[in-house]
Amino acid sequence: MWKWLTTLYHRLGSPKWFYQITGRWLPWFAISALVLLSVGLVWGLVYAPMDYQQGNSFRIIYLHVPSAILAQSIYVMMAIAGVVLLVWKMKMADVVAQSMAPIGAGMTFMALATGAIWGVPTWGTWWMWDARLTSMLILFFLYLGLIALREALKPQEVAAKACALLAIVGVINIPIIKYSVDWWYTLHQPATFTLTQKPAMPASMWLPLLIMVLGFYALLGWSVLLRARAEVLLRERKSGWVRETLEKK
């Protein structure tokens, strides 16, 4: 298993292999994203029970929590890709990081927006400068900074290194987001899901949420692969294999 993983890792490091292998993965990600998201959405928005205090407005959790989880884990993945680029000089890591940045920014925006919409009926305000909301806003600006930095620097290798460094430095913000609700008094409630305790909601509520989270991850895989494959073709446009694949189509 370990050997298989290391071979896969080295193969994915080559642009040509990356393009071929991920081409086979694409339909699986696409199908699982579509199935999981449609099941999760209908289950969560229609069939899951409503909350005893918040009523139906609680259902926005089925968009808010998955987007917030993705916003943070995409950033961690980008930081890991940054380490791989800086230490092992694997250029494909940079392609993946570049493909992830706009999706991460979109997820962070979605978490902030759904949180604001949720805040109006429950808290009575759509924004409060509490530690959780503010650190999440900082994450959004980090994503925007990563996108801007990439556009601002030339040549590509310099931009890649700078973005990798910024991604690694910014990873400090992730534990701050995660533990903000435990370290300080905030308006935002503590986490409903932790690895150590059973969820603070019944299975009829958390099962559709789990399906939504998996669906969001499948959607992430699908969209990142689509973007990364296009970027590989663009970066390798002068090589023979790209010309061959494009001619075949």
Partner: peptide
């Protein structure tokens, strides 16, 4: 502002 907690449950369970 109202502050709510992390526990969600259906009305019957509550």
């Amino acid at each position: 502002l109202a502050r709510h907690d992390e526990n969600y449950m259906p009305p019957e369970v509550a």
